[in-house]
């Protein structure tokens, strides 16, 4: 199960934080700070997995943005790596060539996209097309 998802830039600014387990606000800030510190200085050749407290963080870097998933220790690391990539592809498709600024100004859309992809810490849909179509329908309702 995914515990939380973080999107952070190199400076450690959080661009998206979704928690599927309840945490105090202060604890969330601590987690964000620690995860950023863990992933930011790792060599690109290193594994995309870091052990974090009793869980592990699967992260992937796209340009200046780090996508980090915190998952159970028994979960399939490689699958979640693939999962991050699928999420990025969806964002890229939705914003047509996504950049950090898109995510800043449309943060609420990013949450909307994420909610169509992952729910209750589990993957909800694996088809990029299905998600994009669904988002199109939701857009029309606004």
């Amino acid at each position: 199960m995914i515990r939380f998802i973080l999107l952070q830039n190199r400076q450690g600014k959080t661009r998206l934080a979704k928690y599927y387990v309840p945490l105090e606000d202060s604890e969330k800030h601590k987690v964000e700070y620690e995860v950023h510190r863990l992933v930011v200085n790792r060599d690109p050749k290193f594994t995309n997995f870091v052990e974090f407290r009793t869980h592990k963080v699967i992260y992937r870097r796209y340009a200046g943005l780090f996508f980090s998933l915190c998952v159970d220790i028994t979960d399939n690391e490689l699958a979640y790596l693939e999962c991050i990539h699928l999420f990025v592809e969806i964002l890229d498709h939705f914003f047509s060539n996504v950049c950090e600024l898109d995510l800043v100004f449309n943060f609420h859309k990013v949450y909307l996209i994420l909610d169509e992809f992952i729910l209750a810490g589990e993957i909800q849909e694996t088809s990029k097309r299905a998600i994009i179509e669904r988002l199109g329908e939701l857009e029309k309702l606004e």
């Binding site: 589990e122 993957i123 909800q124 849909e125 694996t126 088809s127 299905a130």
Partner: peptide, 10 residues
């Protein structure tokens, strides 16, 4: 439907 199937399996 894959979405329903994967969530059902889970």
């Amino acid at each position: 439907h894959h979405g329903v199937l994967i969530t059902g399996v889970q």
